[in-house]
């Protein structure tokens, strides 16, 4: 990891202090925890009163209030949750594309999310997805010290996630950061990742060239993962074709995410590294800005 990456990670971690990972309402029903959830629960922290409704635990009936108002009132307590974030990073070779800052953005975004999650009381597990999904141990290790944090896997990470799924925490929040340039059905991957998950967030991290490649004249294109080459004349028709295919692929992922209850966000590495503000994650309220 070179000096520039280290500086980016430092900057990302610093930026991460401004955010916290929102607590998902899906944590309801969890037994115990180290912080309060959004919903009512079984903690000792009083939240509110409301009228009794059939099905309410009769142990929560506020008899004093009933005596005063002659109405059957129950006490509501805040829930207690123990949130966990599973951070999955795609380390395929396409994430380390030449002349792009994808790899730098990948680890910077991971660092930012880790800090944001810690800010929200989350425990965090980080996974590097290559030929296998390897958990980063120890979990508290700063990103800059992660072993084998290299994007050099030449295969299909989607296939890895399906065939060799990581042991993810039940009812945890899962964030997948990848360019999603796989020849893999999104449903299979999403099904695997969203199972028993409180929330699945898919962050498509792209380079600017991935969205709008700047090609002109005769070009020999080299696939960063397979090394396959193709010689083409980069004319407008070809670029149109590329953009059309890319959009179709992205739309496919978005629809699949919607179907799987996952949140899809796009992040352009160069833009993110510019100000370290993950705009789409904020827009989708995955991250929240901390009040000072």
């Amino acid at each position: 990891m070179d000096e520039r990456h280290r500086k980016s990670l430092d900057a990302a971690e610093l930026a991460g202090q401004k955010f916290y990972l929102n607590v998902s309402s899906r944590f309801s029903g969890m037994q115990g925890g180290n912080r309060f959830g959004r919903n009512t629960g079984n903690s000792l922290e009083f939240l509110d009163h409301r009228e009794y409704q059939p099905g309410d635990d009769i142990r929560h009936i506020d008899w004093n209030a009933m005596a005063r108002s002659d109405r059957l009132t129950v006490k509501l307590y805040r829930e207690e949750v123990a949130p966990h974030l599973d951070l999955l990073l795609d380390t395929s070779a396409s994430m380390a594309l030449e002349n792009s800052r994808k790899a730098e953005g990948l680890f910077a975004l991971a660092a930012l999310l880790r800090i944001a999650a810690v800010n929200a009381g989350y425990t965090v597990s980080s996974w590097l997805a290559g030929d296998r999904c390897r958990r980063v141990e120890p979990a508290a290790l700063p990103v800059c010290e992660w072993p084998d944090a290299e994007c050099n896997y030449p295969g299909n990470v989607g296939q890895t996630l399906v065939s060799f799924p990581p042991a993810l925490r039940t009812s945890g929040v899962r964030v997948l950061i990848s360019d999603l340039f796989w020849n893999q059905e999104p449903q299979a991957v999403l099904r695997q990742l969203s199972e028993n998950a409180a929330l699945l967030v898919v962050v498509q991290l792209l380079a600017g060239h991935d969205i709008d490649p700047e090609l002109a004249g005769n070009v020999r294109l080299v696939d960063s993962e397979t090394g396959e080459t193709v010689e083409l004349v980069a004319e407008e028709a070809l670029l149109r074709e590329y953009r059309s295919n890319f959009t179709r692929h992205q739309e496919d992922w978005k629809k699949s995410c919607t179907r799987a209850g996952a949140v899809f966000c796009q992040c352009v590495a160069e833009n993110f590294l510019h100000d370290f503000v993950p705009a789409e994650l904020l827009r989708n309220e995955i991250l929240m800005t901390r009040s000072r």
């Binding site: 396409s94 030449e98 994808k102 490649p213 080299v222 696939d223 396959e228 080459t229 074709e241 295919n245």
Partner: peptide, 27 residues
């Protein structure tokens, strides 16, 4: 000079799919 190719690495050739197919037959 017009036919001299520039080598460019791309994340994936999957979005050049039809172009690739055309090139296979049309190369």
């Amino acid at each position: 000079f017009r036919r001299r190719s520039r080598t460019i690495q791309v994340s994936s050739l999957m979005f050049f799919g039809r172009a690739k197919q055309a090139a296979e037959g049309g190369r």
